[in-house]
């Protein structure tokens, strides 16, 4: 079962971001989402290190060492963009001012729990970064991730096995196999599946029931 590649997943999610939203993209596949939102659709990207109105990566000869995103990669600032300090940047997050946050995850549970920061209670040096702030503070949390682990275990599950980042926070999951809403009291509801896949195929690699709308 193949479905979307990473670029395809990022492009699929980007379709669902309307003009006017303020969006925070996490590290990894989430960062790629920005590449698929056309510049003429005015979406304001927020970066936790104090950037509002972040633009795409610069050309190699235009890199400004002072201007990086949350993953410490060089970025640009769009006209209208601004900088702030960390407490203000996280006030935007924790104060409920961010319309959408997109994160990667190890696991998402049918009740919306997300685990994306530590792989055990005794992880050698776990790194939380801003994930718990984003999970608790953004108006919407969407997850973008592979549907299964590298060894084929489901990442959409009944209950997370890894330590939680935020309970009951995820509203929607984008994977290589499809798009799934998390509906309170119901669980995962299929929005659409990657071209050529059947519900039975996708259910067979999912750790919780998939409902249809």
């Amino acid at each position: 079962m193949q479905g979307f590649d990473r670029k395809g997943m990022a492009a699929r999610l980007a379709q669902d971001i309307p003009e006017g939203w303020i969006v925070n993209l996490g590290i990894g596949i989430p960062t790629m989402v920005g590449d698929y939102v056309p510049l003429e659709r005015e979406v304001i990207f927020h970066s936790e290190n104090g950037i509002l109105g972040m633009g795409p990566a610069p050309a190699a000869d235009k890199v400004d060492p002072w201007l990086v995103n949350a993953g410490k990669q060089p970025v640009t600032l769009r006209p209208g963009g601004s900088y702030c300090h960390h407490a203000d940047s996280f006030a935007m997050i924790r104060g409920g001012h961010i319309d959408l946050c997109v994160l990667g995850a190890f696991e998402v549970a049918a009740n919306g729990d997300i685990a994306n920061w530590a792989t055990s209670e005794n992880d050698t040096a776990p790194a939380v970064g801003g994930a718990m702030d984003l999970g608790a503070g953004a108006k919407r949390l969407w997850v973008i991730m592979e549907h299964t682990t590298k060894d084929g275990r489901p990442k959409l599950v009944e209950q997370c096995g890894y330590p939680l980042t935020t309970p009951a926070a995820v509203k929607r999951v984008y994977t290589n196999l499809g798009v799934f809403d998390v509906v309170p009291g119901k669980g995962f509801v299929v929005v659409d599946l990657a071209p050529g896949l059947t519900l039975e195929q996708v259910q067979s690699v999912t750790g919780a029931p998939l409902h249809t709308q």
């Binding site: 407490a87 940047s89 924790r94 718990m132 608790a136 503070g137």
Partner: peptide
């Protein structure tokens, strides 16, 4: 958590001994 870390220092600077957060 990163936002809690920033806010804990902002609070120290502002004379706020503790605060509540959902994070």
């Amino acid at each position: 958590p990163q936002g809690t870390m920033a806010e804990r220092m902002r609070a120290a600077g502002a004379g706020v001994p503790a605060f509540f957060t959902a994070t």
